Computed example of a mutant assay.
Amino acid sequence: MSIGNSPEDDRPSPEEEPPSIGRVLHQARIGSGLTFDEVSASTRVRVPIIQAIEHDDFTRSGGDVYARGHIRMIAQAVGLDPAPLVARYDSERGGRPAPTPAAPLFEAERIRPEPRRPNWTAAMVAAIVAVVGFVGFTLFSDGEEPRRTTQVAEGPAGADEGSATPQPSREKPADPKPDPSDSAIAAVPKDKVTVRLTVIEDKSWISAKAANGKIFFDGTLNKGDSKTFQDDERVDLILGNAGVIELYVNGKLVENEFQPGQVQRLSYTEGDPEAG
């Protein structure tokens, strides 16, 4: 009597669980032939943090926002698409919180100058000067031919004999236009912190939040994209590719020496720009 296979033997084997985030990053780094120091140099993420992430320990990253940034930068350095890894990180932690929409922000470039109003005062002065000049000429040339009166009424007389001395103009000069501000965003409110950034090439991952922890933005901006953030006390930034970003703080351009691929953590308050 032959004994057949048991029903359990015919059951399909369960699918193998995919490798963890840290395992995927570790294998990609080894496959790319990169050391921890080389990945750290290109991402500005410290070696102990990279080592912890490869062991799926994200506690050293300092929070979910920083952990997402570290995953993105390390994945790009070892040649991986960071989006699936970040999505998996969020799903394993109950989903990513929806960002709170920021209040309408002030953008000085949208302000249109008021149309210049007619200078009625200058017009009235010019009219009075013309009347006074005409009356004065009439008094001085009372015995002259009507032809000469007609000439003066149209404009100053020439050097002909008996012509009246032209009256000096008393027209009030037009008000000088104010010099343009040196700042590209000169009219920002002085009682708030206003930060505007623009990606001038490539792309960059950006995270921005207010002093109370409210997230303004957490995502990737492409070349040409701009964002403006404003808070009463402080604006905290994480720039994932700082070298490609043009940054204005409180209406002033921030001069920096950030490099492409460099991660920068910055904080700005009233009276800045000064790197936090």
Rank of each mutant, 00 (worst) to 15 (best):
residue 122 A to E: 02
residue 239 L to S: 06
residue 56 D to A: 00
residue 33 G to T: 00
residue 191 D to Q: 04
residue 32 S to H: 13
residue 69 G to F: 12
residue 141 S to Q: 10
residue 251 G to M: 00
residue 19 P to S: 01
residue 121 T to I: 10
residue 23 R to K: 11
residue 64 D to K: 03
residue 49 I to N: 00
residue 172 K to W: 13
residue 234 R to A: 15
residue 70 H to I: 01
residue 171 E to I: 11
residue 30 I to A: 15
residue 32 S to D: 14
residue 21 I to D: 06
residue 185 I to W: 03
residue 165 T to N: 12
residue 158 G to Q: 10
residue 276 G to N: 12
residue 205 W to Y: 09
residue 249 V to T: 05
residue 56 D to K: 00
residue 168 P to S: 03
residue 243 G to F: 05
residue 16 E to P: 08
residue 189 P to S: 01
residue 128 I to P: 02
residue 121 T to E: 09
residue 197 L to E: 07
residue 200 I to Q: 11
residue 142 D to F: 15
residue 225 D to M: 10
residue 261 G to E: 08
residue 136 G to P: 00
residue 214 K to H: 01
residue 99 P to Y: 14
residue 12 P to H: 01
residue 192 K to A: 13
residue 97 P to H: 03
residue 245 I to M: 07
residue 80 L to N: 09
residue 178 P to S: 08
residue 57 D to G: 02
residue 40 S to R: 12
residue 199 V to R: 05
residue 86 V to N: 04
residue 211 A to W: 05
residue 109 E to D: 11
residue 100 T to F: 05
residue 66 Y to Q: 14
residue 42 S to C: 14
residue 185 I to T: 10
residue 52 A to I: 01
residue 259 Q to V: 04
residue 202 D to G: 14
residue 117 R to N: 11
residue 83 A to V: 12
residue 226 S to N: 13
residue 250 N to K: 12
residue 196 R to E: 07
residue 248 Y to N: 15
residue 48 P to L: 02
residue 135 V to Y: 10
residue 207 S to A: 09
residue 138 T to C: 07
residue 169 S to Y: 05
residue 196 R to G: 09
residue 38 E to V: 12
residue 73 M to G: 14
residue 188 V to N: 01
residue 1 M to D: 00
residue 28 A to H: 08
residue 222 N to Y: 01
residue 75 A to Q: 05
residue 85 L to I: 00
residue 251 G to V: 00
residue 210 A to V: 06
residue 269 T to D: 12
residue 50 I to D: 09
residue 265 R to H: 11
residue 244 V to W: 06
residue 230 Q to W: 04
residue 193 V to Q: 00
residue 8 E to Q: 02
residue 4 G to E: 00
residue 225 D to I: 07
residue 193 V to N: 03
residue 257 E to G: 12
residue 189 P to T: 00
residue 257 E to C: 01
residue 47 V to P: 12
residue 66 Y to T: 15
residue 231 D to H: 10
residue 47 V to M: 05
residue 78 V to N: 02
residue 122 A to L: 03
residue 154 E to Q: 01
residue 231 D to T: 13
residue 61 S to D: 10
residue 242 A to R: 15
residue 113 P to Y: 06
residue 93 R to Q: 03
residue 264 Q to F: 06
residue 50 I to T: 06
residue 108 A to S: 12
residue 110 R to G: 08
residue 227 K to F: 03
